[in-house]
Each structure stands twice: as C-alpha cells, then as structure tokens.
Amino acid sequence: MATMTYRDALNAALREEMTRDGDVYLMGEEVAEYDGAYKVSRGLLKEFGPLRVVDTPIAELGFTGIGVGSAMVGLRPVIEMMTWNFALLAIDQIVNVAAKIRYMSGGQVACPIVFRGPGGAALQLGAQHSQAFESWYAHIPGLKVVMPATPADAKGLLKAAIRDDDPVVFIEGEMLYNVKGEVPDEEYVTPIGVADIKRAGADATIVCHSKTVKPSLQAAKTLAGEGIDCEVLDLRTIRPLDVEAILRSVAKTNRLVIAEEGWGFAGVGAEVSDLVQREAFDDLDAPIRRVHQADVPMPYNKHLEKAAKTDAPKIASAVRAVCYRD
C-alpha cells in the first residue's frame, strides 16, 4: 500500500481510466495548461494531449452541455466543476438532460458522464463558495451521487464513476485534497452504492459522508473515553443509498446520529431519518439526532463560520443525547 493524498488518488484514477479507455476525456476550466485549479489533473495534458484534456472558457452551462451531448453519442466525459457552486450555472444540463435522457428517449440514449469537483465549504470563502449541494442532486432520479471521504475511496469510486453507464455527480472537497491515506497498489474499483464502516462500534451509529467522516471519527474517539462505543458508517454514495448497511448498523446499536455538511432542511439526514423511522422503528431506543450546517448562508468571519459548521464536538454532543448521557 502506498500513502498518497486524496488529490493524487483522483489524479491516478483519471490517468488509469484515460489509459484504459480512449473515449474518456477531461473537460473544464483550467484543467489543462494550468494543471487544474486544485491540481487534480496535474500532468494529464502532457500525457494525453489537448483533445483529451480540454480547457474551456468560463461557461459552465455550455461546456457541461457539450459534455452531455458527447456522452449521448457514446463518449465518456469527465466534466470538472471548479467548484460545485459554479455548477448551479450548469444545472439545467445535469438535471434536465443528463438525468432524464435515458428515460424520455424510452431507453435509447444513455449518458455515461461524470461531473466532478469540490463541494461544500473550505475556510472563510463566504456565502457563495461554501455550499454543499449533494441533497439537490440526490433528489433527482437518473443521477448517482458519490462522495468519497478517503484517498482509497476517492480513487476506487472515481474509477467506478467513469465506468458507470449513468451520469454520476462526484463531489470532492477542497479540505479533502491534502488528506493522506493508504491506497492499494494493485488496480481496484470501489462499487457505487456501498457504504463503508469506518469504525465499528456497539452503542450508537453515526451516519456521515465526505467531510463529516473525519469529525465523526474524532467524536467517536472522544466518546470512547466516556464509555460510548460508536460505529461510524460512511455512506460514500448518497444515491443509490446503501439502505441495508444503515439498517444493519441501527439494528446493532439502536441509536442514530446523522452528520452532514450541508443544511438540514430536506437534507441527506432527513432522507436517512425517514428511512430508519419507517424500516427500523422498533430498533430505535432514542429519537434520531441530526447534525448539519446552521440554517444560514455561510458567514465569512471565522468564528461565525465555525459556529455554522458541523464539527466533532457537535457530533459528540448529539451522540451523548441519543445515549441519554447529556
């Protein structure tokens, strides 16, 4: 096992898949000559040339539509969003075309495409650059939504997303790009739709994904010192949701906290909550608790921003509550 950053793991996935399949290309702002706004595509232009690593004008709607169109006729584009905030300009193509073209064509036209880039907040980027949109995309039948938290998952899941025959919304994180982790040396592909237990435990389940995995593990460590043994379940994929893994964990621990980065209203946690109260009501020993961003646009001030964000102390406190230890 090699240790590499999340960024380099994504880069390796792109390189391997572009080598494997000549129909795979990368398109977006600054992906080629600049080597990527976050350097995820470093070196790819040199290796694959300008037809397969394509710089675009600042025109998210236009280049996303070009990508979708090319996928409709059989190419397998990877469209980089410099951040998912900018994808709002392209959402017509993602939601109205990519997600629906197979259905409204009666199954004739597929759209094998990956839309990828960093989502959610970084540090002090303010209201327009700090948004977690996974619940928006997860709402749409026809899309898959993948959100790896570790370098190993980032590589395996990006390879799966590129090979997938449906449109995949692949949300990374600026705060994850420098995270280091062990990545298998041999080739592997991580299946979409399968959650992963990042820490096994018996007393309470923390369902989390992407940037909330690390604070969930930190909270679990703190709580272990208080005699609460947490299971940390990383969804990895928001849609399709790994329903079985969630129910299995709740059946074991009988207590559930759901941590996410985005807003709570109609969020991922709301969906998981609904699932668990419906399918596992009798397994629950306490009401489900959710941890999410404060219901405000993200403030710039660092103290206010910290107060708005999901973090380990907030998750720990929610776990204490479901264990009636608060």
Partner: peptide, 24 residues
C-alpha cells in the same frame, strides 16, 4: 436525438455531438 423541452438547452448538446465527431 430529441425533442428537448427547455428553450436553448439543446444548443450545447448539438455542439457536443459535433465535439464527439471531432474527437473521433
């Protein structure tokens, strides 16, 4: 390839087909 219901939405798609022809 459609038949699209959002005004203007098909214009980048048509460019995308042309991009694919150039690519191939």
């Amino acid at each position: 390839l459609g038949g699209h219901g959002i005004v203007g939405g098909q214009i980048p798609l048509g460019a995308g087909f042309a991009w694919a022809a150039k690519y191939r």
